[in-house]
Write a protein that binds this DNA or RNA. Structure first.
Lengths: 174, 174
DNA sequence: CTCCTTGGTTCATTCATTGAACTATTGAGG
DNA sequence: CCTCAATAGTTCAATGAATGAACCAAGGAG
């Protein structure tokens, strides 16, 4: 439902992408998933998204193959949502948009992305300026930036106050 | 209004970008503007977007500095909408999303992007594989791809049936 | 004087989002 | 056995945005 009943007339690849990930909240869910958020409750607390919308978005993303639903415990049955390969490939798009916003809309960045082996900040195109390579997600660390928010107090915000590997599940000290 | 009254709690750069360009239709307006669409009527015919929504989006984008409103004739006064530098810098984000959709959602691409000097197709990160550079928009040509739509019959679709420089205004044979 | 073009605005209907309340399953504590 | 807490949802009334059709306005052409 990204663009109403129909993007039919507009089926260029961009329109197709937007039908899926162009809905309200969807890219933020993906961003959190890239950070390693997997649980319903964590998305909920970190995004301040209405529960009904979160459920609908997660289902849509699972159906589309962006997320995989994984039962991490039986009894009581508990599900978590993990990015598929397809979902992980949204990283360049998320980074491009984020980088644009940082240049034109934001003050200081909240989070920065670093290439762990060389400890260098990744550029807006996903390249490591030092190594000249495009690092994989597993080699990238999210770190608090100069504009980091110290006020939020949900599990995700707390975990991301220290450096954290992309995709690495959040610690659950429960 | 991209994410409701509030992305307040979410002001990472991505959320800020989405507040502006994450609304329904907005990225498609930007995409058309990258192709050289400038006139209200052309956006309207090519996107099949409701007039009220188009007006609202154009105004929002002008206010945000993504588009510049330019009076291309007095009497009767006629406006056109041209991408600013800030707007042109959405190209990598649009390309990243488009490329993702092409890999995971589409059949054959409708349009392909080529680096004119070397006549090579640009990759999903905006690089020319032959030259190893990241071409500027003025050096990029949109060409009909293998999945090109031959059915639509609006001025924009017709103009884009042959190769066309990015940002170059559409011919107006009026 | 009338019609056409361009670029809009207005407005009633439909659809999506919101946020609060409720449900369901199970484990732990008393 | 009874109650409470945690997790992951669903339901629903109220609000707000999108849709599409109709209307408006300012020239220009015939």
């Amino acid at each position: 439902m990204a663009l109403g009943k129909n993007y039919d007339g507009q089926d260029c690849s961009l329109a197709r992408s937007l039908e899926l990930v162009g809905e309200r909240w969807t890219m933020l869910v993906v961003r959190d998933a890239l950070y390693g958020v997997r649980r319903y409750g964590d998305f909920l607390a970190h995004l301040d998204i209405p529960r009904a919308v979160l459920s609908q978005r997660l289902t849509t993303l699972v159906d589309a193959g962006v997320l995989r639903r994984h039962r991490y415990q039986e009894s009581p049955p508990r599900e978590e949502y993990v990015l598929t390969e397809m979902g992980q490939e949204l990283w360049p798009a998320a980074l491009a948009l984020s980088s644009w916003g940082e240049r034109h809309l934001s003050g200081k960045p909240r989070r920065i992305f670093c290439h762990v082996p060389c400890d260098t900040r990744i550029d807006g195109y996903g390249m490591c300026p030092a190594c000249g390579v495009r690092p994989e997600l597993a080699e990238i660390e999210v770190r608090p930036g100069p504009g980091a928010d110290l006020l939020r107090d949900d599990p995700v915000s707390r975990a991301l106050r220290r450096p954290h590997r992309m995709l690495e599940p959040l610690p659950h000290t429960a």
